[in-house]
């Protein structure tokens, strides 16, 4: 046999060995690939990498990789996962509530139905923030000002008009008896700049995610006057919920994982198991504490119906408030 042929055959065997190793691993997920629809350093990225860190440290899986795929308001990553589904057997796509909002708005054609929902992992509740020396002490104060003159309550937010920040505040004001369509919402480029907006006094109230707001409010320059959690949070027990203030508004901005469509049942079970295993480890607890996350674990079909419920709620809200025609 010629040496070249020998090399060829040996490498072929090596390749086969390599793939069969892969196939064996399908029994129990050994490596996880995270698909992140945003650049490094954001909320999605942090959650995926935190989750991966917990998985590695606790030994749930032995290998993780992270693919940041930006573009199309997050739509490109979803499209890619669907297009290349057959070879995304151990891929977890991270996403969150804006996915529901954006598919309702038609920014991208797909929705969660086109993917396999694996599990939600953490929740970020919405909250309303005012500057520390603001006359607004409770949400009722804010609603009172708004009812007298909507122009006196300019609302800052870190995202575009029609996003969750916008319509959650509009909904809360509606529950308080105001006309939500009169709300003047001032979008900023990110939560940090929006926070600066209320501190300079150019806007009076900020609607944003709790984890981002907490980081900044703990600096002592701002106060959180209401959060959309069902009850007070153990990590921030001094923040009143909207429900206890008499406004029946509960809203969780979930972050969770999705798998490619057409995943085999065995693989699907495995993925759910891997995620739930990782969530119960001390390693995840450390990551969760470090980032101040709140656990929100819905799995598989339960997650699916949670999403359906949320989609229903949001579309009713957005229609009422005039964001959807």
């Amino acid at each position: 046999m010629k040496p070249i042929a020998l090399t060829y055959i040996t490498s072929l065997f090596a390749l086969i060995a390599l793939f069969s190793a892969d196939i064996q691993c399908a029994e129990r997920l050994d490596k996880v690939h995270f698909l992140i629809p945003a650049g490094p350093g954001g909320g999605w990225d942090g959650t995926a990498r935190g989750m991966g860190e917990a998985m590695l440290k606790s030994g749930t899986v032995s290998q993780t990789s992270y693919e940041n795929l930006t573009g199309g308001g997050g739509g490109r990553a979803i499209a890619k996962l669907i297009e290349t589904a057959p070879r995304q057997q151990n891929t977890l796509l991270i996403n969150s509530t804006p996915m529901v909002v954006r598919s309702l708005q038609g920014i991208f054609p797909q929705s969660f139905r086109d993917l396999k929902p694996i599990a939600s992992v953490i929740a970020d509740y919405s909250c309303f923030v005012v500057a520390k020396d603001s006359p607004i002490k409770t949400f009722a104060d804010a609603a009172e000002i708004f009812k007298q003159d909507p122009r006196k309550l300019k609302a800052a937010g870190g995202s575009v008009k029609g996003s969750t920040d916008h319509f959650i505040l509009a909904r809360a004001l509606e529950l308080a008896g105001g006309n939500p369509r009169k709300l003047i919402y001032v979008p900023y480029d990110g939560g940090g700049k929006a926070m600066a907006g209320i501190l300079t006094g150019e806007s009076q109230i900020l609607s944003t995610g709790l984890s981002e707001a907490l980081d900044m409010a703990r600096a002592g320059e701002a106060r959180i006057i209401g959060v959309t959690a069902p009850q007070r949070l153990t990590d921030a027990p001094d923040i009143p919920t909207l429900i206890e203030q008499g406004y029946d508004l509960q809203f969780a901005n979930w972050r969770g994982f999705f798998a490619a469509p057409g995943l085999s049942d065995a693989n699907y079970e495995n993925m759910m198991l891997t995620v739930s295993d990782a969530l119960s480890t001390d390693a995840f607890e450390a990551v969760r504490k470090r980032n101040g996350w709140t656990l929100l674990h819905h799995e598989g079909s339960e997650f699916y119906s949670f999403l359906e419920r949320q989609e229903q709620e949001i579309s009713v809200l957005m229609r009422q408030l005039g964001f959807l025609r």
Binding site: G41, G46, G190, G192, K193, M195, A196, L199, D215, M216, A217, R218, A219, G220, E221, R290, N291, G292
Partner: peptide, 25 residues
Amino acid sequence: LGIPGSGTTAILLGALIAYGIQPGP
């Protein structure tokens, strides 16, 4: 003030808080 003005400082804020350092006055 605990306000991140840029993408970089936003990440640094996250890192500081993870160390248990709370920026602010």
